[in-house]
Write a protein that binds this DNA or RNA. Sequence first.
DNA 1: CGGGTGATTGATACCCATCAATAGTGGTGG
DNA 2: CCACCACTATTGATGGGTATCAATCACCCG
Lengths: 258, 258
Amino acid sequence: MEGRSSAGVDRFVHRLLQSTDLSEHDQASLLGLTGRSVEQRARTDLVLPGQTVDYATLIVDGLVARFDQMGSGARQLTAVYIPGDLCDLHSVVAPHVGWGLQTLTKVKILRVPHDQIRALVAASPSIGLALWRDTTIDASIMAKRLSYVGRAPALSRIAHFFCETGIRMELAGLADRASYPLGMTQEALGEAMGLTPIHINRTLRALRDRGVVTWRNRQVDVHDWDELETLADFDPAYFLGTDLRPRDGINGDLLVSS
Amino acid sequence: MEGRSSAGVDRFVHRLLQSTDLSEHDQASLLGLTGRSVEQRARTDLVLPGQTVDYATLIVDGLVARFDQMGSGARQLTAVYIPGDLCDLHSVVAPHVGWGLQTLTKVKILRVPHDQIRALVAASPSIGLALWRDTTIDASIMAKRLSYVGRAPALSRIAHFFCETGIRMELAGLADRASYPLGMTQEALGEAMGLTPIHINRTLRALRDRGVVTWRNRQVDVHDWDELETLADFDPAYFLGTDLRPRDGINGDLLVSS
DNA sequence: CGGGTGATTGATACCCATCAATAGTGGTGG
DNA sequence: CCACCACTATTGATGGGTATCAATCACCCG
C-alpha cells in the first residue's frame, strides 16, 4: 500500500506551478511527497466533521467532496475536488476540522502526513507561499459558489458548475473543457448546488433540450460552450492563477526578502 | 493620516492569539504593523473586483464586507468583517482579487502594506503559520455560510448570522454576544444571506414576534439566546480557535522542526 | 425643514421543494 | 451468465417559501 505513486503528486505540483514559480529543487521536494495509498468506493465518508486529522488527502483518481452537515443530516457540498487536488490542504494549519470529506465516485487517494508537508514549508518559504496561495484559490472557488447559490437560478448555477469543472479538468490536463468525465450522481450535484435532485434532473433536461450540454453515462459533453458560458455568466478569472504568474514583487522567494 | 494607531492592530493580534501561540517577540513584531489610516462613509466600495492591491485592510472601527458581483450587478456578500479583522489577508499571497470590499457602515480602516506583512512572515515561521491559519478560519466561516444559504430557510439563516456575529463580537472584546451593535442595513443583510431585503424584514419581524431577538437602532438584542441557537442550529466550533490551542505537534514554531 | 435613504407592509407570481411513482442502471452473488 | 436488488434517473402533481411589484412610513443628515 505504501508507495511514492507519483501520478497524483505530479498533477498537484503541475497545478501549483500554474500560480507560483518554484525552483527545480522545490519542485523535486514536492514530488518527493509520499503517502498511504487508499482506494474507496463511491459515496463513502473519508473524514467526518469534528475529527482531528494528521494527513492531507491527495486525489489520484476519482472525485471527492468537502461537505458541511446540518443538524437535520442534510449535507451541503462546499467543494468538489478532482485528481491532482490536495483536498484538505488547510488541515495542515487547522487539523481539527469542522467539515467532512466524502467520495463522489470510486476513488484512489494518497494520505500525505501533515508532518511531511510542514517539513517542506519549513525548508522553503516558496513552498509555504505556494501552498498558502493554493488554499486561497480553493477559497475563491467557494466564494464564487456561495454567490451563485445565493443569487443565481438553478439553470445558471448548474451551467456555471459545468463551466468551472470543465476548465479545471482542462487545466489539470485530464480532459477537454467541452468533454470530460463526471462520475458523481445527480443527488450529489444537488447537494453541491443547494438544490433537490429532482430539480437538478429537470434543469439538466432543460439544458439538454436547449442543446447546450449533455451529461450522460458519467460524461459531460458541452455542445455549445459559448451558450453555456452565457447562461452561467462565467468568468474564469477567479480561480485561474493567470494573473498571479511571474510578476515583480509577488512570486517565488519574495517572502524571504522584504 | 499616517500613524501607528494601535487600536485595530491590538485587536487583530488578540484574535490571532486565540488560535495560535506566539512569542513575545512575534507579538511585538505584529503590533508594530502600521498603515495608512482611512475613514469612509457607509456603502462605499474600498476595493473593486479585478483590482490588484498591495495592502491589506484592517478594520479599526465599523463594518466591512467582501462581495462578489454577478453580471446583473447583484451582489452577494461572502464575508462580513468586524473591528480587528484583517479583511483581505489572503490578498497578501493573491493580490489580484476577484472580489471587492465595501463598507457597511461608516468605518475607520488601516491600509497595511503587503510588504510589511511579507517581511514579518519571512522573519518568523510562527507568524506565517498564524496568518495562514487566520485565512483558513475565514474560509470556515464562508463554508458555513454557504451551507446555510444552500440548505437553511430564511429564519434559521438569519438566526445563525446573529449567533455567529454575537460570538465574534464577544471574542473580539467588542460587546456581549447577546447585545451588540450592528450598523448594517437590512438590504446588506439580504445580500449576505441570499435573500431580498423585503424578506429579511419579514423574517426579522417573525424573530421579534417570537421574542427571540430584536434588531433596532443599529443594535442587536438577543432576548432568548438558547432559542436563537436552536433556531439557528448553531455550533460555534467551526470558527473558534478553541481546538487549535496549545497542543503537541501543531502550534508555534513547529513549522521549523519537522 | 426638506430630501433621500432605509424600514415596513400588502398583493401577487413563480421558482423550487415535497410527495409519489415508475423506469433504468450497475453491481453482486448464486 | 443471469437474476436479483439497491441505487439512480426520470416524470407528474401539488404546495410552500421567496421574489417581485408597489406604496407608505420613519428616520437621519444636511
